[in-house]
């Protein structure tokens, strides 16, 4: 029979003997047996609980449940706190799953934003057409899934305004974004229509630099940072959840703040 060690380097029999010495009175045998087997079970199955497919399946189901809970908690009228210019984090950090010098270089002259799905007008938009849209500004806190945060200044047009212009069916469930480097995101329609959800063309009143997502970022102060796609080249209004780069790798789908 294969010997399974509860704790590496420690003989389980000795461990139980040591514990037994501490136990008082007659009833200790039954109690100990229960305790020892419970403990042994926890240790022996520990790896399976943490790494098993079943456990992961259960955890992902709970994560989907949490999507629903967060959607229920989401209030479209609740604005993310805004800050004065003096609160802006300088320099605002570059963040991606690749280094800054590997960030996509999009040619603004040939750029066209593709629009697809449940919309009346699928005409692609050039950058100058996008820049001509009404401009709003926000200074809000970007919160990363890792826990750090930074306050930045973003200018652009409300996504809800753009969705109205292209005749989007706002009864659809999702808006999906595709990025130049292959990154993607799906967001829920209520968040897409939130007044602070912004198609961003500028950072600190200057055209977005490459590091911050030129030519277009979707700034969503009600969602974690990874739900704020940069280098966006296409969007689709859809009833199909197309997932996203990090969502497909295990981060919570809704990731609302």
């Amino acid at each position: 029979m294969r010997q399974r060690k509860i704790i590496p380097g420690v003989d389980p029999q000795l461990l139980i003997k040591d514990a037994a010495k501490l136990m008082p009175d007659a009833s200790r045998r039954g109690f100990l047996r229960g305790a020892a087997s419970l403990g042994a079970l926890a240790f022996l199955t520990g790896c399976d609980i943490v790494d098993g497919d079943t456990a992961e399946g259960v955890l992902r189901k709970i994560s989907s449940f949490n999507d629903g809970a967060q959607a229920a908690l989401f209030n479209r009228g609740k604005l993310a706190p805004t800050f004065p210019e003096s609160a802006i984090t300088r320099p605002f950090p570059f963040n991606a799953y690749y280094d800054e010098d590997e960030a996509p270089e999009v040619d603004g002259n040939s750029y066209k934003l593709e629009v697809a799905g449940l919309v009346d007008n699928k005409k692609p938009w050039t950058l100058s057409e996008l820049h001509a849209l009404p401009e709003v500004s926000q200074i809000t806190r970007h919160i990363c899934v890792e826990g750090w945060s930074a306050i930045g200044s973003w200018q652009g047009t409300p996504l809800s305004e753009f969705l109205t212009r292209i005749g989007a069916d706002t009864r659809a469930k999702y808006v999906w974004f595709k990025c130049a480097e292959g990154y993607s995101n799906t967001i829920d329609m209520p968040t897409a229509l939130h007044p602070q959800t912004q198609m961003t063309f500028k950072y600190a009143n200057k055209i977005l630099p490459r590091a911050y997502g030129f030519p277009m970022k979707i700034r969503i102060p009600t969602k974690l940072g990874f739900k704020n796609p940069k280098y966006v080249v296409a969007m689709e209004v859809t009833n199909t959840d197309k997932g996203g780069y990090w969502e497909d790798r295990g981060y919570n789908w809704f990731s609302g703040l």
Partner: peptide, 29 residues
């Protein structure tokens, strides 16, 4: 994933979830 104190990290052997996404799934369950 984003330590609050320089030099303070928790060993992988005593933490749960294998990486950030796994840990978050456990935490929010």
């Amino acid at each position: 994933a984003a330590p609050l104190f320089d030099g303070l990290r928790f060993a992988k052997s005593i933490s749960l979830g294998n990486w950030l996404a796994g840990a978050l799934l456990w935490h929010f369950a």
